[in-house]
Design a protein around this nucleic acid. Structure first.
Length: 279
DNA sequence: ATGTCGGTGGTTCACCGA
C-alpha cells in the first residue's frame, strides 16, 4: 500500500494537479491538508473518476483536511479525543474546534490527516494553541498505543515544525524569533516520537525540504523547511519499504507551497507469488 | 518591500491567514 500526505493549499485551485499526481504515482491513500473548503464544495468527481473515494472535513475557507482512498474508508474520526479549539478572542476551554484532523481505518491502518496549527508568532495566542494541540495529539497517541501496542497507526500531515536545524533552510525562520523552530515546538514533536512513533521517511530520505514559502524566491534558492511528516507506530514503521519527497511538485504551474511525502508499506509480508515454491 | 499565494465579501480591491 502506498500512502501519501500533501498540504494542497486549496483543493479547488489544484484538483487536477492533485489527482494527476495520485494516479501517476499509484497512491492508494492520499491525506490532504488545507483543502480550504467545506465538504459540499470539495471536487469529489475528479477523484471518483480516478477510482478514489473521498472523506472531507472542512468548516469554512480556512484549514480543512481530507482523505482520498482506493480502498474502503472505515471508522472515520473527525478530530481526535482531547483536541482543543481556537477562535479569535476565544482560545480557552470550549473554544470552537477547527478542521485540522481526520482519521480513518484503511487496509488495516489507522491513518490521520493532520494540519497542526501554525502558531503565527511566539507571543500570539495561536502559539499556545499550537502547543496545546500537539500535547493533546501526544495524549491521543499514547492512549491509543497503550490500549493496542501493535496497532498500525500513522500520523501524517503538515506539522508546522522543523524538528532539527537541518530541516530549516529558510533564513527568516530563526530560533527565538519565529515559530516552527522554537524549543517548545521541537520538544512537542519529540514527545510524539517518545509516545511510540517514528519518522518513517527520514531514514530513507535523510535530507530535503517539503515546503518553500512563495515569497522571496524561496524555492529557486532552495530555502525551504521540512515540516511535513509521516509518523508511524512500530507496526506501521516496520512495514515501510520505501519513501519519497516529491520535490518536483513545487515546480510548474500554480504549485502548492508544499510537496507530497510518500511511503510504501508491506503489511502482509510477501505475496504468495513472491514465495519460493517448496514441494 | 510582508516582494506570494488563496479565499472572502462584495464588488475588482482590502483584508485575513499562511
Amino acid at each position: 500500500m502506498r500512502i501519501a500526505t500533501w498540504n494542497v493549499n486549496s483543493i479547488r485551485a489544484r484538483v487536477v494537479r492533485t489527482v494527476d499526481f495520485a494516479v501517476r504515482e499509484g497512491i492508494d491513500v492520499l491525506a490532504m491538508q488545507e483543502i480550504k473548503c467545506k465538504p459540499e464544495q470539495f471536487p469529489y468527481e475528479a477523484f471518483e473518476e480516478a477510482g478514489y473515494t473521498v472523506e472531507a472535513h472542512g468548516l469554512n475557507q480556512w484549514n480543512g483536511v481530507a482523505i482520498a482512498s482506493r480502498e474502503p474508508i472505515e471508522e472515520l474520526q473527525v478530530g481526535f479525543a482531547g483536541m482543543p479549539g481556537f477562535a479569535k478572542g476565544h482560545d480557552g476551554p470550549g473554544a470552537p474546534l477547527e478542521a485540522r484532523a481526520l482519521g480513518a481505518k484503511i487496509g488495516g491502518v489507522e491513518v490521520w490527516s493532520l494540519y497542526v496549527p501554525n502558531g503565527r508568532g511566539l507571543d500570539d495566542p495561536h502559539y499556545r494553541y499550537k502547543l496545546d494541540w500537539l500535547e493533546a495529539l501526544r495524549g491521543y497517541t499514547a492512549d491509543t498505543l497503550a490500549a493496542d501496542p501493535d496497532r498500525a497507526l500513522a500520523l501524517t500531515g503538515d506539522f508546522n515544525i522543523a524538528p532539527t536545524d537541518a530541516d530549516n533552510g529558510d533564513p527568516t525562520v530563526v530560533e527565538g524569533v519565529t515559530t516552527h523552530v522554537s524549543p517548545p515546538e521541537r520538544a512537542a514533536f519529540q514527545a510524539l516520537l517518545d509516545a511510540g512513533l517514528a519518522d518513517t521517511v527520514r531514514p530513507l530520505v535523510p535530507t530535503g525540504y517539503t515546503y518553500w514559502d512563495y515569497k522571496q524566491l524561496r524555492f529557486p534558492r532552495n530555502e525551504g523547511l521540512r515540516i511535513d511528516f509521516i509518523l508511524g507506530s512500530h507496526a506501521f514503521a516496520d512495514a515501510v519499504t520505501a519513501a519519497a519527497i516529491h520535490r518536483d511538485e513545487r515546480k510548474g504551474e500554480i504549485p502548492s507551497d508544499h510537496v507530497p511525502v510518500v511511503v510504501d508499506l508491506d503489511l502482509e509480508g510477501p505475496d504468495d507469488d513472491d514465495r519460493p515454491m517448496i514441494w
